[in-house]
């Protein structure tokens, strides 16, 4: 599903170059549940942005679902995001003027899906996530947990193969956070590849595989070396 080789990324901050990612090699199988952990500034967000095709590495190679992503144009990468990747953010990033229903509908609106199909898919996913009675509410009328579940509905309504969650429980209390994690894990059990970036060890411990980062490098990976993907790496 995902294969990273020798990924390097550095930023210029003032006069200094910050090495955000160094020599990242990573393979993730279809359907895995992976937690990327580390203190802030360890490069885990940068890694997530590169995995989500929002950012490009300075060097290295990245295959996503068999596609060499570094050769894609801006338009092709946008298309790959649309078809393959769902994002869940710490701050939800719901559009405040739109209702829960409209927020979930948005990816399909942008993709040009027919209205009848849009309606059916939004209603089904809201029902699955127990949000049917909140469809007409705007984000400011929803609780934090509900907002994040609307965001998850939006991230998965296009049926992506990879779900990237950046501190999905960071703005939630314990109960709401658990509920959100349950939702994500249920989607993972359905076959969706799930990557969660977190600095919360409780959240990280729930994942089947954990990667620890420090200073832009992977320092521990308790799942590497196992699974079919690694063996398939040339």
């Amino acid at each position: 599903m995902i294969r990273l080789e020798e990924i390097e990324r550095s930023f210029r901050v003032g006069d200094e170059w910050v090495h955000a990612l160094r020599h990242i090699d990573l393979a993730v199988d279809e359907g895995e549940y992976l937690a990327i952990m580390g203190p802030s500034g360890s490069g885990k967000s940068t890694l997530l942005h590169i995995l989500g095709l929002l950012d490009r590495p300075d060097s290295g190679r990245y295959w996503l679902g068999g596609i060499d992503t570094l050769s894609l144009s801006e338009e092709q990468r946008a298309d790959a995001r649309r078809r393959l990747i769902g994002f869940v953010f710490q701050t939800f990033h719901l559009i405040p003027r739109l209702s829960a229903y409209e927020n979930v509908e948005l990816p399909m609106l942008l993709a040009g899906v027919r209205p009848a199909e849009r309606r059916e898919r939004v209603q089904r996913i809201l029902r699955d996530l127990g949000l049917s009675d909140r469809a007409r509410h705007r984000p400011d009328q929803l609780s934090g947990g509900q907002r994040q579940r609307v965001a998850i509905a939006r991230a998965t309504v296009m049926a992506p193969r990879l779900l990237l969650a950046d501190e999905p429980t960071g703005n939630l209390d314990k109960a709401a956070g658990d509920e959100v994690m349950h939702t994500l894990e249920r989607l993972n059990r359905g076959g969706l590849t799930l990557l969660v970036v977190t600095h919360d060890p409780d959240i990280g411990d729930r994942a089947r595989r954990r990667i620890r980062m420090r200073d832009g490098a992977i320092v521990a990976d308790d799942g590497s070396g196992s699974g079919p993907c690694t063996s398939a790496t040339p």
């Binding site: 338009e75 946008a78 298309d79 790959a80 649309r82 990033h93 948005l106 942008l110 939006r154």
Partner: peptide, 16 residues
Amino acid sequence: TAEIGLLKALGSPQRE
């Protein structure tokens, strides 16, 4: 800005 970033994350290319 955040909304534009979101649209991009949802797969909107520049022309859209």
